[in-house]
Design a protein around this nucleic acid. Structure first.
Lengths: 145, 145
DNA sequence: TTGCGTGCAAAGGTTTTGCATGGCA
DNA sequence: TGCCATGCAAAACCTTTGCACGCAA
């Protein structure tokens, strides 16, 4: 039987990185920021990259690429199962991640599968836009550009 | 008065690049692909970058950054308003970028705005999942992983 | 003639990889 | 002890920039 053999060791670096991600409470960071945070604390940037990659693969954290494509940023998500069942909205202005539970999603997913022959992956899909707070804070910002 | 003074010259390279983008009929390319296409035809990659940047600023083409952040890809849009009106689906298995014109999007956008106070930006949002081709090619591939 | 457009090469930044060592189980 | 994890440095990549020349208007 292939038991839930972890095949992964618990290390100081790994714990430090996961703890740090958790401590952000949903906030997002880049590898660069983390590298600076851990500078002098014995955690190199290669480890950060590899660790984040693993965590993202496990679904414990989420990886975003910002619009300008400069560098990726990561954030902790505490319940990945629930995450298959709701929208993830990211505000391009303030960076907030919003979890939106909504059954419209089922309709969307079904539609994509039936009409477009496409199985949607909610763990990867992120909706970009502007959140209510930033909308009201913004001036007119019409469709101009 | 600031007339519509072009302040831009018509060049062989510029025409070539725009023609090529148009010839794709909405398909998408990376700079790398274009550089290969124009290799030996006297259009360097620097020009491609600068030209695409300009075209994107003018709204004649669109620039995407996929979630893996590898490289940006561009596509011609002859009607940028219409372009706000379709889904962009990316297959995580084969990497295909699919354009899905569909009015379900309007419902989705309206819903997000009304119910979730979130203005969706279709220029940035990409749906990730598995395309029909890859779905049928795959075995069962249940929710396992 | 003017000055934008082009192209080469180099710089800049992010992410990945090779390889030897370190540390968990 | 076995094997994964780590870290340094180098490589691989993508994109931008400096500078001189070419070419459109």
């Amino acid at each position: 039987m292939m038991r839930k053999r972890p095949a992964s060791y618990r290390t100081r670096q790994g714990e430090g990185i996961l703890d740090y991600m958790r401590s952000l409470g949903g906030g997002h960071v880049t590898v660069n920021q983390m590298a600076r945070h851990f500078a002098g604390k014995g955690i190199g940037q290669t480890t950060i990259y590899r660790r984040l990659e693993k965590l993202a693969a496990e679904g414990l954290i989420r990886k975003y690429v910002l619009n300008d494509g400069k560098s990726a940023c990561y954030q902790y998500v505490d319940n990945r199962e629930a995450c298959r069942e709701h929208f993830h909205l990211v505000c391009e202005t303030c960076g907030a991640l919003i979890h939106a539970d909504c059954d419209l999603l089922d309709g969307l997913r079904a539609h994509l599968l039936l009409e477009h022959d496409f199985r949607l992956d909610m763990l990867k899909t992120v909706f970009y836009g502007t959140c209510g707070t930033c909308l009201s804070a913004l001036p007119i910002q019409e469709g101009g550009a």
